[in-house]
Design a binder for these strands. Structure first.
Length: 203
DNA sequence: AACTCGGGGCA
DNA sequence: TGCCCAGAGTT
């Protein structure tokens, strides 16, 4: 694993989140919006959205019919609108207006599962967190680190193989690698910088 | 474990 | 036209 991370660091020296945000609440909204879509669409929508609303108080007071058109364009807009409003209300009424910074509390927020909670811990609060999304899951599977498609199990395996200080970096390296080379459909194994270390490579 | 939500992008 | 995309909740 350490050799793989070293090679990926050389390939992607600037690997980090592509989501644009100015505070943890904006990161939370952007991360909820990011489900099953691309980061570029999320950035466009988030930028426009936060020109109108900025605080949990403002989002908590919206109705779904008000918010849905504003986030249309990145899919799943009804679910995401309900999640954003519900999470804002819970942040306001239960967590004193502050986004919580523990796994347990984050996962109580509507629309926030284990992946989003880990992103908030790691990217938002600089705490230990390793988010397993579809990229991380697929890359881990092909590299032989994950033997099934249970993201929570993959998270535990990766955490056991990677020093805690590098969890965030490893998460982004796997994502960038998954986008650039290790795509789901037609992976570019012939150009892949770590193909020689990959038992799942295709010839 | 399977199903549903969903518009945009791309082959 | 068909299939996938920085997932989560329900059945």
């Amino acid at each position: 694993m350490s050799a793989i991370l070293k090679d990926l660091k050389r390939e992607f020296p600037e690997a980090e989140t592509r989501l644009q945000f100015r505070n943890v609440f904006e990161l939370l909204i952007a991360t909820i919006l990011s489900a099953q879509t691309t980061d570029e669409q999320v950035n466009t929508i988030t930028r426009a959205l936060f020109k109108q609303y900025n605080t949990p108080q403002e989002f908590a007071g919206l109705s779904p019919l008000e918010l849905e058109p504003l986030i249309n364009g990145c899919g799943l807009f009804r679910n995401k609108a309900r999640s954003i409003i519900g999470a804002s209300q819970m942040i306001l009424e239960r967590f004193g207006g502050q986004v919580p910074d523990s796994m347990e509390e984050l996962m109580e927020l509507p629309g926030v599962g284990r992946k989003t909670a880990n992103v908030m811990l790691n990217v938002g609060f600089g705490k230990p967190g390793l988010a397993v999304d579809t990229h991380v899951q697929r890359v881990s599977r092909r590299l032989g680190f994950a033997e099934n498609d249970n993201p929570e199990h993959t998270e535990l395996i990766l955490k056991s193989l990677i020093p805690v200080r590098q969890w965030g970096r490893a998460h982004h390296l796997f994502i960038w690698h998954g986008r650039a080379y290790c795509q789901a459909k037609k992976p570019k194994c012939h150009e892949c910088p770590i193909a020689k270390r990959c038992p799942g490579r295709q010839t």
